[in-house]
Amino acid sequence: MTVEDYDTILDKGFTPVAMDIVNNRLRDKDIMKKFLAFLDYAPKAAQEWVDHGIVPFCPLVIPLPFDEFTGARTMAKFYKDIFKMPDKVEAALKIRLAEDLEMLRNTIPVVKPVTVFVGGTRSASEFISPKIFERFVWPYLKEMVETIVEMGSYADLHFDANWERDLEYFRALPKGKCIFASDSATNIYKLKEKLGDHMCLKGDVPASLLTLGTPDEVYKHCTKLISEIGPTGYILSQSCSIPPNAKPENISALMAAAQGK
């Protein structure tokens, strides 16, 4: 994404810019073909899980507009844009938000997801000041969550990085309608202290433990979380994603702890 693309977004929306980037500016010229193949297979994959008695938790995924722009523009350049032309950046973010909200209103009634995966990382408070957070992140996050709840789903806040400084903001989100998924950077015990009576908590079995630890270490860590963070209002899970090199016996230990075996 270039500086000139902001004017295109203000004129035509973010989607045309995103499609131009994907189709014409990436090194991998077949990326769209691969992505469409993934989308074609996704409903079949979801149904296979359902056939095995497992309901897909987050079949619908959406990033925060701030994070999407940092990905398209690069993190360093986008942060500079915020200071060089804040009004234009804000206007572009609002346009992208409108597109996102329209997608949610059109898609949630069709997909009927249990939760909608809301992704945030580079918008975390460890990277930006409270002033930037309040103007360029929080209003968009809040409106996306409120729209998801309005349409009948829960918001799964898959928020990597450290959000501890801004946890009080999250009490303004609809009570009992959100899940805060920590990746270990945000301390799950601080989440329990600040938000445990307001939303569900999810996590926090580190990737390092699943990869390098023993089944006994994993099991003890998981049962400790269930006891101290749960047992209610809590979902035991890995931090962010299960790493591809995690030991199968460690995943079995996590599942055994969740099942109380």
Results as ranks from 00 to 15, higher is better:
K175A: 02
A256R: 15
M85C: 06
L60W: 09
K84A: 12
R171Q: 12
M144W: 10
D28R: 09
K112R: 15
C222T: 11
E146S: 10
P206D: 02
C240T: 13
A124G: 07
Y234E: 06
H52P: 01
L93K: 04
D28L: 00
K175G: 00
D5V: 01
L101K: 13
P86L: 08
T2P: 02
K84V: 08
E143C: 01
A257R: 12
M32F: 13
L64M: 07
I9M: 12
R27M: 13
P231H: 08
A253W: 14
T70F: 01
S208N: 14
P86S: 07
E126W: 12
F136W: 09
K112Y: 11
V218I: 09
D51T: 06
Y154M: 14
K142C: 03
Y41C: 10
N24R: 14
P231F: 04
L10R: 09
F127P: 01
D100L: 11
K224F: 08
D87A: 10
E164C: 05
K34C: 01
S184F: 12
N23A: 09
N187V: 07
P16Y: 13
L195G: 01
I226Q: 08
I242D: 07
L97K: 09
F136A: 01
K112H: 10
L26K: 00
D87H: 08
I226F: 05
S239A: 15
M199F: 01
E90W: 12
F127Y: 14
D11Y: 05
I148M: 03
G260E: 11
R96K: 11
E99K: 06
L254V: 13
D166P: 03
L36T: 04
A18I: 05
G260T: 09
V17S: 01
P65V: 00
S125P: 02
D7T: 07
F159I: 03
V111T: 06
L101I: 12
C222W: 05
V114C: 05
E68I: 00
